[in-house]
Amino acid sequence: MNDSHKNDIGFLLKKIDEKLEKQVNANLNSLGITFAQIRVLIFVHEAENQQTTQKEIETFLEVSHPTTNGIIKRLEEKQLIKTEMTLKNGRMSKNVAITEKGIELCSKNEADKNLLEDKFTEWLSEDGKNTLRELLLKIYEKLC
């Protein structure tokens, strides 16, 4: 590969993503959970009354019903969430709620996430962090 490509913004973003994912997965592995599972757990934790539906999780993750079902099943096996089938608008719906154990894991993950973010932004001033955040948001919005 030509060295000039190493400074391409897309290439740099991809390499940063890969490094971050590797570190995040190492942290999550110590908690016994995957990245997809923690995303669902945080989504449920932040939902109104700390509960949501499987359909809303599917929409959030942008994945298929079977994939979401598998993630939910594994979280339930770990006693991080609980599910319940309910009748809503004449249709069956799977409600998903976080457990105390799930809330504790979210808190632990938040502390780990903050440490990791501090580690890779420690050389930036607060203004620099805000500028970086704004630029990344603009890139993201343009891609959506």
Rank of each mutant, 00 (worst) to 15 (best):
Q23T: 00
T99S: 07
E100H: 11
F120P: 13
I72D: 01
K108I: 05
I57Q: 02
K129T: 00
V63I: 00
E100V: 03
E18K: 15
N109H: 12
W123G: 04
Q51C: 08
E77K: 08
Y140Q: 03
R91C: 09
E104F: 04
S30E: 15
A26W: 14
L135E: 11
V24I: 15
Q79T: 03
R133D: 12
R91L: 15
E77F: 08
L143Q: 07
G32Q: 07
E58T: 00
E58S: 04
N130S: 09
K142I: 01
L28Y: 11
E126T: 07
V24N: 06
T59V: 03
T121R: 12
T99P: 05
E58D: 03
E141I: 07
I9C: 05
I42V: 07
S93Y: 10
K101D: 12
L136C: 09
K15M: 11
L12N: 12
A47T: 06
E100S: 09
G10N: 13
Q23Y: 13
D118C: 11
I139D: 00
D8R: 06
L116K: 06
Q79M: 06
N130M: 14
Q79Y: 11
N69I: 00
T68M: 09
N25Q: 14
K82C: 04
R133M: 14
D127M: 10
D17T: 10
G70M: 03
K119Y: 14
T131M: 12
L31G: 04
K108G: 02
L61D: 02
I72F: 07
S64F: 07
K108L: 11
L87T: 03
D127E: 14
K129W: 09
E56I: 01
K19D: 13
R39H: 06
K78Q: 11
L87P: 10
H5M: 15
T68H: 02
N27R: 08
E126M: 13
E62D: 05
L105S: 05
E62H: 08
E110K: 10
E77N: 05
A47S: 15
E141N: 12
Q79S: 08
A26I: 12
P66E: 00
A47Q: 10
L75M: 06
F35H: 09
L13G: 07
K94H: 14
I139C: 02
K22T: 09
I16D: 10
L116R: 04
E21L: 15
D112N: 12
C144K: 10
N109P: 14
T53D: 06
G10K: 13
T131F: 14
T83W: 09
D3V: 03
E134P: 10
E110W: 03
I71G: 00
